[in-house]
Design a protein around this nucleic acid. Structure first.
Lengths: 334, 334
DNA sequence: TCCTAGCGTGCAAACGATTGCAACCGATCG
DNA sequence: CGATCGGTTGCAATCGTTTGCACGCTAGGA
């Protein structure tokens, strides 16, 4: 916890002015090589480190990106953060992270706070209301939305149309004609997209699609067990893998064989999807890439360009043991 | 993306000086109530928002806590972050998060960078070498270590002595006399603690303890499958749940019945531990609390006090279906 | 009526860096 | 030998805010 060495300390020690030291350290060509060497030496010896905050303050824009996520503990968001963090760091930026706990009001507060420190904002699966989003976009910094489609902002999202098609075609290929979707949080744009695209594709494939509300966690999936059991569907698609794994667990606990009695498939393919029993059929998407693309859009925009077209990431279906041929008849139990 | 309103703009509009505006807005008692009201009104009307960075710059210490974690996608760390984030925000601080990717050199670089912006540092399960840690502690900001014991720093950790005892007593209670520990990353202090306390407790309980190296992910656990199978242990303790679930998966794929042929238990009890097949016996610890305690230590220290004594969190054993009575004879196969 | 006390307000310095501009130096050229 | 020029260097302003200090005004007491 030593005292901080400032520019002026180096200057005094080197017998020059602060401006000379600043220029020498920043590689200006207006300074004679000997002086540069000398100053560098002195600075090194004193252990001088520029006060980044003062630097950025003087220079203007903060080299910080504010990010909001609904839930830090959700692997989906962790990986997006990982990708974004890596890209931003490579670009000399840092991440200021805020967690909204799935609460739109809290997210709005976060945005308000983050913008004070950030030169740009990334809203990850924003749960904001439309009005809230408007407010966020009115902030004096560029905003990128991940998994939410908005005008006048950068947009990076998963191609849910392709995703839903992959899922439903896989299931129809196995003979399923009646599919149940266990949904996510009502505030989630991507849940809406999943529903919209599923409905549309179901119609095209002549599949009957039912929907029930769920949530975003394993518990939500577990709790949906009874409802799923009493539905007439032979296959279930869950909002995400956490819900899917929770549902599998309920099925196991209640003696329902997967996939012989019921097929389960899901979105996201988080790492543990491969380790559930049975391993979960899911849609792999490159979440880290989502973060990287968000950063790309941001740099373009910060570079003065207009917002690029939305980046859509096409997922890939990973078929595992949780899906299989449809059983012949509806099971009636309990 | 409108122009920023500064203090001077408000002053001009209100017909006073910047100092008056500043004082009025900050609630100084040196200003007459009418002026305060007027200034407040004007500021509100103009939509003035203080430039936090300028403010903090002037005021000194940054209201930011730098945090390092080995891996953002590990649920353990996500939850610690969640707790820390909540506590810090409540205290008016923000989190600047860095991910070291389990790499000590990268962690050192991160520390170096984070101190430029932070008034305090939290190292979460630091993978730093001893020398690296020395350097980190030499930084001009207070440092708290989570799950790593260091002098001259705040320390918050899980009580591994209690943890290992709970695990081994549970297993010996089921008749196991030979236990294998599948270890974590070599750079992990907590892996060292797990080993140390397991050995010690094993000696006390007259249990034979073998050890093999593993890692921190599901893949590491899966890969350890063959080694585990060929060992003479009837029960396995894994470094964490991810490793444990990976191992369970290998056992399943290779027809080894858990727990009848082999018991598996682990540390941490992350949410999905309850949803593995079979559900994993594990040690529940309040990870969010780790983050909160780290913040508590920090505030005390920032308040001028010395570092408090280390906080030790005692975990609780959650017995699930992955552990059962020891089989009678060593299985010899393959 | 004059002095003083005290409240309210504004000026200016400060935080630590960057940078435009002016000044100064020696050397070169006319 | 003096003017000029190119190459270095330092002075001072600046970013947006807070705050010590001094100043002016009003009111109250002598």
């Amino acid at each position: 916890m030593a005292e901080r060495i400032r520019l002026i300390d180096v200057a005094r020690e080197a017998g020059t002015s602060v401006s000379t030291v600043s220029r020498a350290l920043n590689g200006s060509d207006l300074i004679s090589p000997e002086v540069v060497a000398h100053v560098r030496a002195v600075a090194g010896q004193l252990g001088y480190r520029a006060d980044k905050r003062a630097q950025e303050f003087k220079l203007g824009r903060p080299l910080t990106v504010g990010v909001t996520v609904p839930d830090l503990t959700n692997p989906f968001f962790s990986e997006v953060l990982k990708g974004l963090n890596g890209a931003a760091r490579a670009g000399g930026y840092r991440l200021l992270i805020g967690e909204s706990s799935e609460d739109p009001a809290e997210e709005l507060r976060l945005v308000d706070e983050l913008v004070d420190y950030s030169g740009a904002l990334v809203l990850c699966s924003s749960r904001l209301t439309r009005a809230g989003l408007e407010k966020a976009l009115a902030q004096p910094v560029p905003v990128v939305c991940i998994n939410r489609n908005v005008k006048n902002a950068g947009v990076v999202a998963i191609d849910y149309r392709a995703a839903s098609r992959l899922l439903l075609e896989h299931l129809t290929g196995l003979g399923h004609r009646r599919v149940l979707y266990v949904g996510g949080p009502a505030t989630s744009w991507s849940d809406g997209e999943r529903r919209r695209t599923l409905r549309r594709t179901a119609r095209a494939l002549d599949v009957t699609l039912d929907e029930v509300d769920g949530g975003w966690s394993g518990n939500h999936g577990y709790d949906a067990g009874p409802t799923v059991l009493h539905s007439r569907a032979t296959a279930v698609i869950t909002f995400n893998d956490l819900v899917g794994i929770g549902l599998l667990s309920w099925m196991y606990d209640n003696g329902v064989e997967v996939p012989s009695e019921l097929s389960v498939a899901s979105y996201d393919d988080i790492p543990i999807a491969a380790y559930s029993r049975p391993p979960l059929t899911s849609l792999r998407n490159d979440r880290a890439k989502l973060g990287e693309l968000a950063w790309d859009q941001l740099t373009k925009r910060l570079g003065g360009a207009d917002w690029p077209a939305p980046d859509l990431l096409t997922p890939e279906l990973v078929v595992r043991a949780s899906t299989g041929p449809a059983r012949r008849k509806a099971r009636i139990r309990a």
